[in-house]
Design a protein around this nucleic acid. Sequence first.
DNA 1: TTTTGCAATGCAAACGTTTGCGTAAAAATA
DNA 2: TATTTTTACGCAAACGTTTGCATTGCAAAA
Lengths: 358, 358
Amino acid sequence: MIIISKDVRIIMQTFDVMKDSRITLKDLAQVLNLSPSTISRALADHPAISEATKEKVQKKAEELGFIPNSIASSFRKKKSHTLGVIVPRIDIHFHSLVISGIEEFAYKTGYNVTIFQSKDSITREKEITKLLQNKMVEGVIVCLATETYNYDHFKKFRKLGVPLVFYDRVPSNYDTNKIVINDFESAFKATEHLIKKGCTRIAHIAGNQSTPIFKARLQGYKSAIKKHHGNLDEKLIIPCKTLSYEEGALCAEKFLKFSPMPDGIFCANDYTAVSVIQVFRKAGIKIPEDTAVVGFSNYPISRVIEPHLTTINDRAFQMGIEAAKLLIRLIEEEKKSIKSETITLETELIIRESSMKP
Amino acid sequence: MIIISKDVRIIMQTFDVMKDSRITLKDLAQVLNLSPSTISRALADHPAISEATKEKVQKKAEELGFIPNSIASSFRKKKSHTLGVIVPRIDIHFHSLVISGIEEFAYKTGYNVTIFQSKDSITREKEITKLLQNKMVEGVIVCLATETYNYDHFKKFRKLGVPLVFYDRVPSNYDTNKIVINDFESAFKATEHLIKKGCTRIAHIAGNQSTPIFKARLQGYKSAIKKHHGNLDEKLIIPCKTLSYEEGALCAEKFLKFSPMPDGIFCANDYTAVSVIQVFRKAGIKIPEDTAVVGFSNYPISRVIEPHLTTINDRAFQMGIEAAKLLIRLIEEEKKSIKSETITLETELIIRESSMKP
DNA sequence: TTTTGCAATGCAAACGTTTGCGTAAAAATA
DNA sequence: TATTTTTACGCAAACGTTTGCATTGCAAAA
């Protein structure tokens, strides 16, 4: 559907005339009979410029619709005021929350955010790191691709003096800045909650054990069980690859065949937890009376599923805020710090009906 | 938790030495006894440069770890190779899908994506448009803030020759490029589906009527009812402000008091649809036997809720792809086109259990 | 009055890359 | 061999802003 009206023609004319006729500092200088340097300083509120000229310049700039060319400025000052962000996928709710936090803080501080998706591919991740170096970003925030176990492609940033902050899926054995939650403690809390609710056979749907966060969650679960129940039944632990909704259903089917069945299940994420609840309910198992369920991440779905899901708030938005805050601090610090920082965010157990045993 | 090891110290030394010692074209030129222009052309695979020198340059560039300064290049060429994206919020699943599509296409085409959240505030939206002009973005993709009814702050882009593409919440009465779905037809399809399933009293949870997309959905609903049932009972239409999960529950409560109750409900989004299903089921109403429900958007939750929700796939990812594709075409077109384009994506009715009346 | 000091502005270079034009040498043509 | 064409490269300007240093005018101190 294409519409060409008389109106559009008029607009086009304007368009063609104005095209690329951006007013520059020099133009302003000429008009005002001042030097470009004075204009520049006036606009930057430099103390050496008199208030009178400052006002004059401001007014004229406004009048002529002067738009400072920040690329020229970046070029000259060697500062792009841009942060690069590499996430596995933008459309995963957790990451979109983190990005939202990053943008929020960056915007307030005057930085721009350029995003890239690694699609969990190390090849693409490497490509992106190269791009980011060209682009002269001032700092980079990364959540590693699942495939990434070697971090060499990030070393160049250090050489270039570009600070890095990793979040969630962070490098192990590599000293750098990290924003994480305490997965161990969170899992411990979640498991302990089930124990306190009277569960005696608590199962765990575990994530990919080559990913540190899921490993830590399993450890937290184990630790809580050992502390309160003494011994641990390894059979109650079912490892998953992707922790998808579908995989969760498969785990649930397995649990249904156990005898006795688990009376509590701690799932490494919310998708599998939701899946378990649905499969169990279809099988006539009452949640939470027969089996209590706890998830991890506080996805929107957790407060929609019936019964509402007890889960761990993983502070995704806050993670983004902290990542941006730390990164910008590192960028603006006079002498770039040598120390690497790891910020651990406090999680919170959100207790809902799925674990409220009578 | 701060760890300083001997290793880190060594890295730091390297770091300090290397800092800001980026190799430039000039450096390369000097080393190779060639002029910067030759280096530039060699690296750009210019036909006027011999294969021999090209190879020599490539090799040396690799060897010295030359990183082209794309800010300088952007500055000189007046091309930032950057797209600006303004969305109300990144953490809304629909938008994160669109952004994902935008990034996907932009990445393949060599463009970067800088994102901004308007937070549905017109003030912030205006601020962002100013920023984007400074940044010399080559094109902008926008989903308008709910507050936005005046589009003057976007007119400057046209004057600057920067193409704009709007998606989802697009300006009305303003000739520009738009990517939309056919909300009218989709709503018509959804309502007709309920009619064909035998529903005779079909209600509608409508969105904010000052937003064109929700207005169109209401019209589509009305049109289908009128076509098949002849007359329309306006009481069966409940308008909502935000279409939130909570608002959906309020609507559901109202429907429960109707007599006779609606035997079909078409909701303007999935949140309210899910809410309706839950409230109805708690009240003992069988879905879909007593009342069939159809949502809109195909949110992840729609295939988790029991019964799974019949809904409209709004092609969010594809919308992002198309927006980026159109924008980049507009950017790269020789003579910027005068015509505004509106691309309407075909939606798809996804039929699941919530509408499968026997 | 001369000197010193300060406030306000200008000069000019620089940032790294690109590009139109010029030119030398080599190759092709007359 | 003389002339033209082609090939391969260099020169130098330009992009718009910033910034160290120089400069001007003028008031305060000597």
